[in-house]
Design a protein around this nucleic acid. Structure first.
Length: 228
DNA sequence: GACCAGGCACATC
DNA sequence: GATGTGCATGGT
């Protein structure tokens, strides 16, 4: 199928890829590290997540058994640089406890579950919302589940592909129903959107030089303090 | 000092 | 169902 939306989304990808090349996401050494990073990066700059992960690595706790044995207070001290550290320690713990109860602490068993069922299960864990669940599925499990984040919503909104009330599932479905169901493609696409977002599509945007600049969009740079 | 960052749960209406 | 708020470190 080749609707207009589908063509536009593919053209976005091509333009971003041409500008930035492969992003090689997720920036982690193992599925375990992906999952920990996905929880730690919630509403947090990646730079700070790296510090927290470095602390965990230094303490040799990038390991589900060790994480299972630690207290939430010990964990909190290690993840402190990532911000909201008490909350995040609790969320990591709730995932670990769940992984232990349900899959004996074994990620391979977890990913052996059918992806739709696993997504529902992940969403039932306190601290794992839609973006985190999809990041785990895609970047730790290689499941073609499109990840939506604040940049994604902002970029699509500014290009008129969704309105500002579009929710997570609506945006996710827009990608998944208009692109080939390919985990490698979804992987690269989301990473490229984040790169465009970081460089050009923050709350106060900088459209100059953006690889999507040539596509129809609303240039808000001159009215960052607009009130509608 | 203000604002932001690869969200989420929970309270309230 | 929609909207508001707390969480918190570190960079710009």
């Amino acid at each position: 199928m080749s609707t207009r939306t589908s063509q536009t989304l593919k053209a976005f990808y091509d333009a971003m890829f041409e500008a930035f090349g492969p992003q090689r996401w997720w920036p982690a050494k193992s599925p375990t590290e992906v999952i920990i990073g996905a929880i730690l990066t919630q509403n947090t700059a990646w730079r700070n997540v790296e510090r927290a992960i470095a602390n965990l690595a230094a303490a040799k706790t990038l390991d589900w058994r060790r994480l299972h044995e630690m207290t939430v207070e010990e964990l909190a001290e290690l993840v402190r640089p990532a911000g909201t550290y008490k909350v995040k320690a609790r969320r990591l713990k709730s995932f670990v406890e769940w992984l232990w109860d349900r899959y004996q602490g074994d990620l391979k068993r977890m990913f052996n579950t059918s992806s739709d069922a696993l997504r529902e299960q992940l969403l039932s864990v306190s601290g794992i919302g839609r973006e985190t669940a999809d990041a785990i599925l895609l970047y730790a499990g290689g499941v073609p589940s499109f990840v939506v984040d604040a940049y994604t919503a902002r970029i699509l909104y500014r290009h008129g592909l969704v309105d500002d009330s579009a929710d997570y599932d609506e945006i996710k479905d827009l990608f998944e129903s208009n692109l080939p169901e390919d985990a490698a493609y979804f992987n690269e696409y989301h990473a490229l959107l984040v790169q465009v977002g970081k460089l050009h599509c923050r709350p106060c945007p900088r459209c100059e030089g953006c690889p999507l600049e040539r596509f129809e969009h609303e240039d808000l740079t001159r009215r960052s303090s607009r009130d509608e």
